[in-house]
Every structure is written in structure tokens, then in C-alpha cells.
């Protein structure tokens, strides 16, 4: 059903901290590993060991250079995956009902058995969150690890998305944005979480925490010359001083 639910019970999603992300790509690799071995079909690659390698990934890490006015440029690593938008345009354009948004937790999913691989959902997404699987010919996207978060067999601490579980710098956080006391809601409130391309009207659930302001070193004032003459040294230092004086 491609009609979007007016509200969802929970709004599960991610907070991505651009301040602490180190750009190691571990989240993307972990995502690829989990989603190629679990789920409906593998996350395929073509020519994986050749010269023209290409494949479907659900998470991609871009690196941007940001140049503030009158200050040096800084590097920001930028992980990008599905934002599980409230007004997901990818869902409403789907002709078959393969794409849907779950009313219980707001996760946007693709039913691979219904997908005809027309690609219109990928055209409708401004974020490039959906990729066609080159072997299965169906659309693939982030599932928010729906097969981990509700698992009853995984260890308690593993019941979070693979990318969040693996991030070595705690730049990724998972939680319910409908709960004002959740870790993700708190982080967004404290750090001023932002939407990507709000002008597209997609109302993304995932939020990004901007890098904290840099403490920039001020040019140190030139030290004033000490007007009082240095006390005269004696002993060995006095001899050294005199010897150096003689050398000029």
C-alpha cells in the first residue's frame, strides 16, 4: 500500500553525528555484510574483484570540504543512507505497492517479491538512498536492520542496526523520535539536529548533528620586549655567556 500513514506509532531512525564521524566506512561495510547474508536476497556486486567493480550498497560515506568565511577549510565525513522520511516520495510513486512505510514504526521497506524494478522510487528520492540490485533487478534500500532490532535470538546489545553497532566513534545512534526522552530525541535537541534538503518537503526522520564549532587559535600578540636587563649570570653559565659573546 503506497498511501503514507498519517502518523506512525513509533518513528524509528538514526542520528548521525558529523562531529565524531571519522570516515572509516566501517558502518557501510558492516551494513553490506549484514544485508548480504540476511534478508530476502543478497546485496549483489558485479565484477567484485575486477577493474570495473560496482554493486548495491545501502550506506555510502561521502567526504566534503567545508570552507567557512575567513577561516581554513575543514573536512566532514558524511554517511548517507535512507532517512525513512515521514513524507517519503519513493513510496507514493511506487506502482506495485512494493514500497511501503510501516504504520507501527515508520520504517520504509521494499517487498522484493512485488518490485518490478522500474526505478521510479530511486528517481523520486533526492538523497540517493535507493539502489537497484544489479543481479536481482529489484530495488534495495536500508531496512533499519528490521531483522536485527526485533530479533529475539540476537544478544540484547546486538538488537540495533548493524551500522550503529559497529561504529567505532559512536557517531551513529538509533532510537524512537516520537519519544521525547529517547537518546536520539535528546541528541537532536541538545546539538541542533538538522534535516537534509528540507526544501524537498520529505520530512526526513533521520537527523544529522552538525560539527561542533572549531576553537580557532587567535594570532598570539607579539611578546613585549622585556625592558629590565637580564640578571648577570655567574659560574659556568657566566663563562658560557662571555664565551658566546666573544664569538659574536
Amino acid at each position: 500500500m503506497t498511501r503514507l500513514p498519517a502518523t506512525t506509532e513509533k518513528r524509528l531512525g538514526l542520528v548521525i553525528d558529523l562531529d565524531t564521524c571519522v570516515g572509516c566506512h566501517a558502518c557501510a561495510v558492516s551494513c553490506k555484510e549484514w544485508n548480504t547474508s540476511a534478508g530476502a536476497s543478497p546485496l549483489s556486486d558485479v565484477d567484485a574483484y575486477g577493474a570495473d567493480v560496482s554493486g548495491a550498497w545501502l550506506n555510502r560515506i561521502h567526504t566534503f570540504e567545508v570552507t567557512p568565511e575567513g577561516a581554513p577549510a575543514q573536512i566532514v565525513h558524511f554517511p548517507k543512507s535512507c532517512l525513512h522520511c515521514d513524507d517519503a516520495p519513493c513510496v507514493t510513486v511506487c506502482p506495485t505497492g512494493a514500497s511501503y512505510k510501516r504504520p507501527e514504526d515508520g520504517i520504509v521497506l521494499v517487498d522484493e517479491d512485488l518490485c518490478i524494478g522500474c526505478g521510479l522510487c530511486a528517481w523520486a528520492c533526492p538523497y540517493g538512498a535507493r539502489e537497484m540490485d544489479p543481479v536481482e533487478n529489484v530495488m534495495k534500500k536500508c531496512t533499519l536492520c528490521v531483522d536485527r532490532i526485533y530479533s529475539e535470538t540476537l544478544a540484547e546489545e546486538d538488537r540495533i542496526p548493524a551500522c550503529v553497532r559497529t561504529c567505532p566513534s559512536s557517531a551513529r545512534h538509533f532510537g524512537d523520535f516520537n519519544d521525547p526522552d529517547s537518546n536520539v530525541s535528546q541528541l537532536v535537541a541538545d546539538r541542533g539536529g538538522i534535516d537534509l534538503m528540507p526544501e524537498m518537503g520529505t520530512r526526513p526522520v533521520n537527523k544529522y548533528l552538525p560539527p561542533r564549532p572549531k576553537t580557532r587559535s587567535q594570532p598570539a600578540p607579539a611578546p613585549a620586549l622585556d625592558p629590565t636587563p637580564a640578571p648577570k649570570a655567574d659560574g659556568f653559565l657566566g663563562w658560557l655567556d662571555a664565551a658566546l659573546d666573544r664569538l659574536g
Binding site: L18, H25, A28, D52, V53, S54, G55, A56, W57, R60, I61, H62, T63, F64, E65, V66, T67, P68, E69, A71, A73, Q74, I75, V76, F78, K80, G119, A122, W123, P126, G128, E131, M132, P134, I194, D195, L196, M197, P198, E199, Y208, P210, P211
Partner: peptide, 27 residues
């Protein structure tokens, strides 16, 4: 606006996430 980093300054891509082409770049 795409990165939300406009509040800091001018944004320029430094590195693509992948060395080759992918579905997004081809399509």
C-alpha cells in the same frame, strides 16, 4: 542544503564514497 553544512560555509565534494560507478551515478 543537501549536507546541512551550509551553516558552516561553502561545501565541496572532496571524495566520492566509491571509486567506480554505481547505480546512482549511472542513472
Amino acid at each position: 542544503t543537501a549536507t546541512g553544512l551550509g551553516l558552516i560555509g561553502k561545501v565541496r565534494l572532496l571524495e566520492r564514497p566509491h571509486t567506480g560507478e554505481n547505480y546512482l551515478t549511472r542513472e
